[in-house]
C-alpha cells in the first residue's frame, strides 16, 4: 500500500473483511503467511516495541467496543493510552487530562456538547462518532475502519469517512475501510479490494469502477 492511499474493502457478509482488519491490527493471529505493518512484522515484536507499533495503528470496530458506563471524555482519551503511563491513565479517570484536545476532536464529529455524558446514554450513531473521535486524538498513521458508517445517516457517513481519510492522509499513512455501501466506497476511496470466501477477487482503482459493477459484487450475498 502506498502512503496516503485510501482502500475500501468490499465483500458479502462472512467474506473475511473483519478478519483481514484483525490481522492488520494484530488482534487475529494469521494462520498462515505473515503481514508487514509499518514495514515490520508484528509477530516478531514483544512488549514496548510492539505497543509502540500498535499505537501507530488506529481501529474503529464494527461493534465499537466502547464501555457504556464510562464518560465520553474517557472513551476518547482511551485513544492515548498507547502513549500514557498507567499512573497517568488512572489519574485521568479522576481528573480528565487533555480535555481541550478531546473537545476539539468531539467538535469535529459534531458531539462537542456531549463531553461528560455517559457513553451508554448516546445513540448508536453518536457512539460511532465517539469511536472516530478516539482515533482523532490517537493520531495513528494507519487507520483501520470496520463499517464506520453503518449506523449513520448519509450526510454524517460522508463526514465521518472524509475525516478518517484526511486523518490517514495527514498522518502520512493510509486508510483501510470495510464498507457495505458501494457509493461511499467509490466516493471516499482510491482503491477497491473485493473479497470472496477469504480470497481477493478484485483489486482496482476506484476511478475505473462504477457503482453497478460493485453492486453486482454485493449481489453474491443477496
Amino acid at each position: 500500500m502506498a502512503v496516503g492511499e485510501r482502500v475500501a474493502v468490499v465483500g458479502a457478509s462472512g467474506a473475511g473483511k473483519s478478519t483481514l482488519l484483525g490481522v492488520l491490527d494484530g488482534t487475529v493471529p494469521p494462520t498462515a503467511g505473515h503481514v508487514e505493518v509499518h514495514g515490520t512484522d508484528p509477530a516478531g515484536l514483544r512488549g514496548r516495541a510492539l505497543r509502540r507499533l500498535r499505537a501507530r495503528t488506529g481501529t474503529v470496530r464494527q461493534h465499537l467496543d466502547l464501555p457504556g458506563p464510562l464518560r465520553v471524555v474517557h472513551n476518547v482519551n482511551a485513544g492515548r493510552l498507547g502513549s500514557w503511563s498507567a499512573a497517568r491513565a488512572a489519574w485521568s479517570l479522576l481528573a480528565p487530562q487533555g480535555t481541550a484536545e478531546v473537545r476539539a476532536a468531539l467538535d469535529r464529529v459534531g458531539l462537542a456538547d456531549r463531553v461528560h455524558e455517559r457513553t451508554d446514554r448516546l445513540s448508536g450513531g453518536q457512539r460511532q462518532r465517539v469511536a472516530v473521535a478516539r482515533l482523532l486524538v490517537q493520531r495513528p498513521e494507519l487507520v483501520l475502519a470496520d463499517e464506520p458508517a453503518s449506523a449513520l445517516d448519509p450526510a454524517l457517513a460522508d463526514v465521518v469517512l472524509e475525516l478518517l481519510g484526511s486523518l490517514a492522509v495527514a498522518g502520512g499513512g493510509a486508510l483501510v475501510a470495510a464498507l457495505h455501501d458501494p457509493a461511499l466506497a467509490l466516493r471516499h476511496c482510491d482503491r477497491v479490494v473485493g473479497l470472496e470466501h477469504g480470497r481477493v477477487v478484485l483489486d482496482a482503482p476506484a476511478a475505473s469502477l462504477g457503482v453497478t459493477a460493485l453492486e453486482g459484487f454485493y449481489g453474491v450475498s443477496r
Binding site: D25, T27, R51, A78, A89
Partner: peptide
C-alpha cells in the same frame, strides 16, 4: 466483555491502561 480491552491493547495501550479503560468501567 473482553472486546473493549482487546481493542485498546491493539491500539498500543499498556495492560494496566487497557484494564482501567476497557474492563473496569463495566465492572464497577
Amino acid at each position: 466483555d473482553r472486546r473493549p480491552r482487546e481493542t485498546l491493547l491493539a491500539a498500543g495501550a499498556t495492560s494496566a491502561g487497557a484494564w482501567l479503560y476497557g474492563t473496569a468501567p463495566a465492572l464497577v
